[in-house]
Design a protein around this nucleic acid. Structure first.
Lengths: 415, 415
DNA sequence: CAACTTTTTTTCGGACGTCGAAAAAAATAA
DNA sequence: TTATTTTTTTCGACGTCCGAAAAAAAGTTG
């Protein structure tokens, strides 16, 4: 059953709608905000003057004239923009041995970034919290300025967002690593946790909501295989946060040996070690090395395939087939608008595409395929951290700054 | 981006919350409604007096005393209940050769039901609309009373709810059969369309929202294999309505021949014809007969397996394995709270359970399995139609009767 | 250059929905 | 009959949105 609604909720939602409009469409005059949000001019004035008083948005008076030199009559529009100095957000990406950190202001501009390292092999489940806090503290103190108003974490592997832990990840030898509680306690601000691949989906959605909206999936093909999922314009994480863990969904019962010890996982055909194992002609039951395959090695593999080397071509062919079956299963289950392939191995998508589409054809009745768009986009290392920043900012817009009287709270806590 | 909110929306939502509370918890006094909905007594009085004036709810003054004989002091609570005569809903289930119809009043009481037949083999894509309308008209006229305020359709196969058509279904030899538009036009009321298995999920959710809530999946194992999906307490149908078509998701690449012509579909291991083919020792590439396997034959198969007959046991074993892999893939993709197995073959779940759980163990790392509950519930033929009624009533509560001034609209259209 | 036109922004008053508090209603207990 | 208890209704205050009108800030025109 849905919840009751009250007056406060209206204002909260409309404040958040205005903030989101400014974030999505950039600096705008009040009249534009009215058109975008469907709010009346009177209401826009009321809300924006509150937001200005609270220091969340500000007028911008630079070269607005230049744009309007075309002899426009009437009172000139005065543009409003998010006030970068209103708050800062801290985005953190956890992977093997490294903690990547980025600090951004409320306007989305990067204030600074850095990488800290730790020892994935020896860290303990309750010891990592302190390491993380120390790294973040060092980073923030080094940059100076106000502390972050929210922290968003993205981790490889399986996260449990209700528990605030990383359940199982290549980044840790141990399981159930506490991350949210220590950070939230140390900084006294909200802390979000998500799977790294979901943050790719978030990044795409925030940059182009029309294209990457509704229900769509991101397949991340790299060291492993992950999936990020948007359902009805919202990040979908399932009951515990472990949804979209397609890498260890089974492709062929009893098939290739996977790093996780199971047989036939999608990752055992598409992960970097799997491609390499196949290309080298090793038995598919050969246990994968525990060490990550270097990026260089993968690039060489791609080059070899482009040069027409048989083993490499076979590997990408098998990977493409697995990918196509994965497409089919995702489509049959979720009926998405779009599937995006990215990750380090996405550069090799052209080598896999034919096999993937053939497998899709083989695996799925045409009527079910519907009008799903499948596209590969070149991999950018920064996409995950950018998505994490975007998620943190969105959380500020909708959860924190939507609260009426945020300004007075701020003053109160400053005393 | 979220939508703006305004005052009307508050009232709409709170009206709908009150109606839903009455539907879920039965007749209640205003003070109970206040507790359940979190609305103040003043607001409850205001909303309920509107709803009474509009004829949507009514006081009930029967044996309330008996319950309160325990010498309760104070003003006695006066119970309110949904007024059955406020409206009627028509639920329709389309399957091979038959149109099942049920008419219920606004309180959820069944007014009447009937089955009409048509010829699935010869009906045309644009000819079926008239057949459907005629059947519904005949049914309603036969019962007398006011016409339905909404019609909800459930169909076997793949529906396209944005187009309002049945894209592909065993119930029709042709594709893209128009159903929503003809019905909506003929009756001048909203018409909803859904896959039949989704209506099982809806029925479960409406009877026990605590148990069947959040994100959960229903696997329907019967003539074919279907899935119904709730995501975050809402029916999930994907972009076109074709989500959860897991029956034709691939289980084993290049595996058994399916009725759809593809190889290795889940249904080619779990559908009734698949079980039968396996039990009879036929080759797995034997084309399935086009005729549906009778319910009787399946019951005999179950009996044979219970009697320890090898072929039958093998068939259920293979089916169980396929089912377990399906569990694993659904869990990896959606991380649901619960998976429910039902359908005619669900009576055979005990015969398949061991193999299914073994396959699940084999296919999914334990950390991903999380705390998903898997349960089989005995199949009731009526579940689909009951879910369809529930969906129609819920649509009235939230979409139609939530509109303020519904009463005046009604009067206006009566003139 | 003063009056007019155009466009944006603000102000004002009305309407409406929720809420808390107080009053009213309807029963039992003393 | 009066007091007590519980439910329901009434009343007034408050907050929010909106439409209309006014104000502001430009360009245009004679």
């Amino acid at each position: 059953m849905t919840q009751k609604a009250d007056r406060d909720q209206i204002r909260r939602q409309n404040r958040s709608v205005v903030l989101q409009a400014l974030r999505r469409k950039g600096p705008q005059a009040r009249i534009d905000l009215g058109r975008v949000t469907q709010l009346s001019p009177a209401t826009v004035t009321s809300i924006t003057s509150d937001l200005i008083a609270e220091g969340l948005i500000a007028g911008v008076d630079d070269d607005a004239q230049r744009e309007r030199e075309k002899g426009a009559r009437g009172r000139p529009r005065s543009l409003l923009t998010l006030d970068g100095s209103a708050a800062r957000v801290l985005a953190v990406k956890l992977s093997v041995n490294t903690i990547e950190m980025a600090l951004a202001d409320y306007g989305g501009r990067l204030v600074g970034r850095d990488v800290a390292s730790f020892d994935s092999a020896t860290v303990t489940a309750d010891g990592f919290g302190q390491i993380l806090i120390d790294s973040l503290r060092g980073f923030i103190d080094g940059l100076g300025g106000p502390p972050p108003a929210i922290v968003a974490l993205a981790s490889q592997g399986v996260v449990d967002d209700s528990a605030g832990t990383v359940a199982w990840s290549p980044a840790f030898a141990v399981r159930h690593v506490e991350v949210v509680a220590p950070v939230a306690r140390a900084f006294g601000v909200p802390c979000l946790l998500s799977n790294d691949t979901n943050m790719i989906a978030e990044a795409l959605h925030r940059t182009d909501p029309a294209r990457y909206g509704g229900t769509f999936a991101v397949l991340f093909v790299d060291y492993g295989v992950g999936m990020g999922l948007f359902v009805n314009n919202r990040l979908f994480v399932g009951e515990t946060g472990a949804a979209a863990e397609i890498g260890h969904a089974n492709h062929i019962p009893g098939g290739s040996l996977c790093r996780c010890g199971r047989r036939g996982c999608l990752e055992a055909y598409l992960g970097d070690y799997a491609l390499l194992r196949h290309a080298r002609g090793l038995d598919l039951q050969t246990p994968p090395s525990r060490l990550p395959v270097g990026r260089e090695t993968i690039r060489e593999l791609i080059a070899a395939a482009r040069a027409g080397e048989d083993g490499a071509l076979d590997a990408f062919n098998a990977g493409g087939t697995a990918l196509g079956y994965a497409f089919a299963r995702v489509i049959a289950t979720l009926d998405p608008r779009r599937i995006v392939v990215t990750g380090a191995a996405a550069d090799a998508y052209p080598l896999m595409e034919a096999a993937a589409l053939a497998a899709l054809e083989e695996a799925l009745v045409t009527d079910l395929r519907g009008s799903v768009d499948i596209e590969a986009i070149p991999w950018e290392e920064d996409l995950i951290l950018r998505g994490t920043v975007a998620r943190a900012l969105h959380a500020l817009d909708t959860e924190v700054f939507s609260d009426t009287g945020y300004g007075s709270q701020k003053e109160a806590s400053a005393n």
